[in-house]
Amino acid sequence: MLDSLKQKILGIVTPQTVTCPSCKKEFQSKEMKAASYICPQCGKYLRVGARDRIAMTVDKGSFKELAADLSSKDFLNFPGYADKLTAAKESVGENDAVICGVCSIGGIRAAIFVMDPRFIMASMGSVVGEKITRLFELATKKKLPVIGFTASGGARMQEGIISLMQMAKVSGAVGKHSDAGLLYITVLTDPTTGGVTASFAMQGDIILAEPGALVGFAGRRVVEQTTGTALPENFQRAEFLLKHGFVDSIVSRDKMVETLTNLLRCHGVKIS
């Protein structure tokens, strides 16, 4: 009722059903959300939007968003970018592909960023880079740990070389935060690839991953084309990274808050 009213007034269309990409069973959106986007039938981890992820992770009512008003600009007049931005903003209802803010988790204050794979595959352009950089700068100043949920198709090619420079910009801010003796935990979610993997996703003091998350530098198809061989099913999955030593732990969605809380506690962060 409320949804249909919202649709009428704001023109926002909320899909009523979600189909599991693995077992293809259809569920009511509400039911899927209540299940934390884990398919009730087959157990597949579905991708989670940034707002939902924040709601699943932080203490209720504790989230204060930062730099929400930044939005991307088509400064290279890149073919199709302006339309792509408009469409993403409309369908996702966010200004860009990352949400940043300050919150508490298990009663412990932390800075948090969450990338949203629904927004142009959470590709990293100026806005994503700037928001995450500002978050690290604030966290360094306020002596807060940073929790980052990564997801990304890589750098946003529509912003040309400036998107590549975001990798260095964010890395610089991560480095300053680290030099101040502060904790940075990354949670790699499906999919984390390209320039985000090759920068702040892999710079955490502790790197967690969700089960089955695809994490890599080069895309699977590119690797197959380069080497001319078929790759195993588990290639670049979280379990593959764990085996090769690039992830500290794979944490299921129902244990994420508890795990983050325990890690924060172990780093001498005072309970507020």
Binding site: T197, A198, F200, A201, F217, V223, T227, T229, F246
Partner: peptide, 15 residues
Amino acid sequence: CGADAEERGQGEAIA
């Protein structure tokens, strides 16, 4: 962009 590079953490090395 080979499988060997991915196994040995190309992303982590660049990061």
